[in-house]
Design a protein around this nucleic acid. Structure first.
Lengths: 245, 245
DNA sequence: CGCTACTTTGAATTATCTCAAGTTGAGTGG
DNA sequence: CCACTCAACTTGAGATAATTCAAAGTAGCG
């Protein structure tokens, strides 16, 4: 009954370049990344599925919360993070349009989720999700696939944080985000994407301090490798950035 | 057709304490952790499932390999790791008896898997696995659950590596392994488990250098928090160790 | 018994952090 | 339109946890 709504990102056509807007947050995420789970299909499949809008800074849920829904991102970026007792924060992953969010087994959220810009989601009640998971192997597989991809990203980030220099960690993060946002493998053509992240966010994702991130970004900008300015990331040569990472 | 072979670890009875053997590797993992996926059930379910023995140091597969099987660990420990060009190695996770290993979506292994001691697995051909996944929602859910748990561990480790001191990172790792190996939540009763890891392994898992790990372990031993000696980890007070982590 | 890998300890080095002090820039309200 | 505010960004200089390098000690294994 379900047509193939699961497209491997790799074979998707490269999306159009997004214009570089000066407004951080407002326009970030307006362009839709490759939609792994089609919205119409979601609506049809989950009768009680609820479409929701979230302002920048809103929490979808906090760490430890009992979540009654799972979510699919239609628009906007979010971050998964853990807070530490000493006030530090580790950003675990980012959520981009087209990606699912939530847990099948865990009762309590192992991390918090906060919107990085105005966003839109489809909330699916756990029960409906469970039914779909059991009834539709293709759906189950797609979810599993997403978990696997998230797991791979977690491993990459762990390796990055554990083994690489500050500069390299920042490069890797930027390269990853460009690749995920554009859905394209790194080429030599210049790319520009809306990046709804402060240096604080980059610092918390790479396990560096803001000052260190700042120094790295200044250096990268000087060298023309990558320029982050006013909510926009410009990369003259993504392949070069990827190589650095 | 499938009886409930999926038991949440939390409600399992605490397993018997394993005797402290002096032989690293030989006896490590001889005791079986809570089996999430029963061996008999696996055999019955996957006709072509193949039981295999692997010596310590053997690779199940290397990073980048095209794996034709998925695996379930019956006995022994293994590690998932990534190798870096400069010779460094990041251990991503450990695999304990009762846990599945493999990828549904990825064609190529994103990490290598090496045995930490003599081990025994059940290899399930990808095709058979896929069929079971589609045919049996309970199985699919169990797999998803395991992925989720692995993902949570990756997030914890990322946070640990990114935000904590050398000493704390080592404590967290030891606490995690004790909890996974015994299947029990930390109590005040002394615990001793076979730990088939060298300091090198601990270093690569915590993103520290061997010397730093050594210094941390010496300190922990002096304070009576945890003692690692000849393949055995003794923890006088697991609750205290957990608190430290 | 001797090789090899692992562990331990010390001393010097360094990447990153911390602290401190600007500067810039977006948003606000007069 | 300007002054004000607050947060984000930038830069410098000093502190430090962990690394690096070096070397000795120990244990496992053929």
């Amino acid at each position: 009954m379900t047509q193939l709504m699961l497209k491997p990102p790799a074979i998707l056509p490269a999306p159009p370049q997004v214009a570089a807007h000066a407004l951080r947050g407002a326009d970030a995420g307006a362009w839709r990344a490759p939609m792994l789970l089609d919205e119409d299909w979601l609506s049809a499949h989950f009768g009680r599925a609820l479409r929701r809008r979230h302002p920048r800074g809103a929490h979808l849920f906090l760490e430890g919360a009992e979540t009654e829904n799972l979510y699919f991102f239609l628009r906007g970026w979010a971050m998964k993070y853990k807070s530490l007792l000493d006030g530090r924060r580790q950003i675990l992953d980012f959520v981009l349009p087209g990606e699912p969010l939530g847990f099948v087994a865990a009762q309590r959220a192992p991390y918090a989720v906060e919107m990085l810009c105005d966003a839109e989601t489809v909330a699916v009640p756990r029960r409906a999700f469970d039914e779909a998971f059991g009834a539709d192997p293709a759906f189950a597989r797609a979810i599993c696939r997403q978990f696997e991809a998230a797991s791979a990203r977690a491993h990459d980030r762990m390796t990055s944080i554990g083994c690489r220099s500050a500069r390299t960690r920042v490069c890797r993060l930027l390269a990853e985000l460009v690749e995920r946002a554009t859905g394209a493998v790194p080429a030599h053509a210049p790319v520009s994407i809306a990046l709804p992240l402060s240096q604080r966010h980059i610092a918390d994702a790479t396990a560096l301090r803001v000052e260190t991130v700042c120094r790295a970004l200044v250096q990268l900008a000087d060298e023309g490798v990558a320029v982050v300015r006013r909510g926009t990331l410009r990369v003259p040569d993504p392949a070069m950035l990827a190589e650095e990472a």
